[in-house]
């Protein structure tokens, strides 16, 4: 049903943990498949999702997450190595359900022409260069994202 102006979704990804990386990528790639325009603004820790040196090793914290399928008392979650354990468990569960990897969801976003915007200020603060980011990322600031989001019928923040 191609209307003259495609619907648009504007998403903000603020967190760099594995569980928080999935929702923006799943929604943006699906929006593109539904013939909507989709864009994600990666800011603060969310920048890690498009940092090619970091996005293959995103983790999950076992601390303060009572909703985890196997909740761990915070005092245990504090022990060294527990983040790796929680991350391994989550990857295992997701693998069993054949959930796509972060890399392949990013690839599907790019195939769907999802606009990926890296936050310039975050890059400056964290010493991240444009060459550290995956291909196809546009770098911009708050005004760049707001300009995009102004014409969006859906705005979400993760």
């Amino acid at each position: 049903m191609s209307e003259e102006t495609p619907k648009r979704i504007a998403i903000i990804a603020v967190h760099g943990s594995l569980d928080m990386a999935y929702p923006p990528l799943i929604l943006a790639s699906t929006a593109a498949a539904m013939e909507m325009e989709a864009g994600i603004f990666f800011t603060f820790y969310g920048l890690d999702i498009i940092n090619k040196h970091k996005n293959k090793s995103l983790g999950v914290s076992p601390i303060a997450n009572p909703a985890a399928p196997m909740p761990v008392p915070n005092i245990i979650g504090m022990l060294p190595g527990m983040t790796a354990v929680a991350t391994g468990m989550m990857k295992n569960w997701m693998g069993k359900q054949n959930v796509a990897s972060i890399e392949s969801l990013l690839e599907m976003c790019r195939m769907g022409n999802v606009k990926l915007i890296g936050c310039q200020m975050t890059m400056d603060v964290m010493g991240v260069k444009e060459s550290d980011l995956i291909e196809g990322v546009e770098v911009g600031g708050a005004a760049t994202f707001l300009d995009y989001a102004t014409d969006a019928s859906i705005q979400l923040s993760f």
Partner: peptide
């Protein structure tokens, strides 16, 4: 078959 959300939709579109 065997794929989880959102892949069936993405592959259908492709």
């Amino acid at each position: 078959k065997g794929l989880s959300c959102p892949e069936p939709v993405l592959r259908t579109k492709m």
